[in-house]
């Protein structure tokens, strides 16, 4: 091989707003979020998935029995993000957390605004902080916040 020379470089951006059709189950989930409500879906064994899916992830069976849930829940794990990136839900230090909503059996991922890492704790209770404007998207929940 000949000597490696310095190569030309250039920025390259891939940008697109995808339009995702939802189907019946996700449609109900996002419609509920727009109305500042949360719903899950019941599996055959009676447990409730949130976020809901149109099928059972373990068996592939179709699901569709929607269940209303509370917008409060418990943190089952968390990761402290000291330096958020611009795309991320909060532009100050926050936690990504797995949150099991009251009435659900599986946790969903979202952001928790606790102010400081020392206020975060597994098994802490949190409540959804709704966005000012809701459009039918996961970010209709701006983030969760600790419940004292």
């Amino acid at each position: 091989m000949s000597q490696i020379e310095k190569a030309l470089t250039a920025p390259h951006v891939i940008e697109y707003t995808y339009k995702r059709s939802l189907g019946p189950v996700l449609s109900q989930f996002f419609t509920a979020l727009r109305e500042r409500r949360v719903v899950g879906v019941r599996r055959k064994d009676g447990t409730v998935l949130c976020p809901p899916k149109e099928y059972d992830p373990d068996t592939g069976e179709s699901l569709g029995d929607m269940v209303p849930l509370k917008d409060t829940g418990v943190v089952t794990s968390w990761a402290w993000v000291a330096k958020p990136r611009p795309q991320q839900p909060l532009q100050k230090p926050f936690a990504y957390a797995l949150i099991r909503l009251d009435g659900a059996d599986t946790p969903l991922l979202h952001a928790v605004d606790a102010g400081s890492e020392s206020r975060m704790k597994t098994s802490m209770r949190v409540r959804a902080r709704w966005a000012d404007t809701t459009t039918g998207a996961i970010r209709d929940i701006a983030c969760f916040e600790p419940v004292d």
Binding site: R20, S21, L22, G23, L26, E54
Partner: peptide
Amino acid sequence: AKRIDVSMAGLIR
């Protein structure tokens, strides 16, 4: 052209 009645999972299912 547009199967907006289904999600990606719904389409393949």
